[in-house]
């Protein structure tokens, strides 16, 4: 693929802000539109931008696919563990076991904040992995 100076520069400048927006969507998911899935997809789209402009190998140096695979599996396990935490205190699966904060603040809504972070990391790692494998494949 031919390299373009403009695409290279813009994607490098835009990359941290896309990641910041993704983290904002994840961490404010219980107060405003957004949430784990959407934030994770936005995180992944930032990494895809780097993949398209600088090549998969340079993106894979920062986000090694072995670690991404570990993160994706561990986050699903963590989600199940947090769900089972509700069973441990004698209530239903995915029952809240953290104290509820003040309404409207970021630490409100118990452990939904942490669930959003877990789901966001899992979705982001999964979509980045799909794109790595498709971009690396040889085709017909």
């Amino acid at each position: 693929m031919k390299e373009s100076e403009i695409v290279d520069m813009i994607s490098r400048k835009l990359f941290p802000y896309i990641l910041l927006f993704g983290l904002y969507l994840i961490s404010y998911g219980h107060l405003s539109p957004g949430g784990g899935f959407q934030g994770g997809v936005v995180l992944a789209s930032g990494v895809i931008l780097i993949c398209l402009s600088r090549g998969v190998s340079s993106a894979e140096r920062v986000f090694p696919s072995r670690k991404l695979r570990i993160v994706e599996a561990e986050m699903f396990f963590l989600f199940l563990l947090m769900g089972a935490g509700g069973l441990l205190i004698g209530k239903y699966f995915l029952e809240n076991f953290l104290p509820l904060g003040e309404a409207g603040e970021v630490p409100s809504g118990g452990f939904i904040f942490f669930l959003n972070i877990v789901i966001g990391l899992k979705v982001g790692a999964g979509i980045i992995l799909i794109c790595f494998y498709i971009l690396k494949s040889k085709g017909e």
């Binding site: 539109p33 957004g34 959407q38 789209s45 895809i48 498709i134 085709g139 017909e140």
Partner: peptide, 24 residues
């Protein structure tokens, strides 16, 4: 909420994947 998901997945990630796959 759905609008953010549709814009990020439908117009962003899926289009990039389709274009890459067509080029291959």
């Amino acid at each position: 909420d759905v609008a953010i998901a549709e814009a990020a997945v439908g117009a962003g990630v899926a289009t990039v994947l389709f274009v890459v796959i067509i080029s291959k």
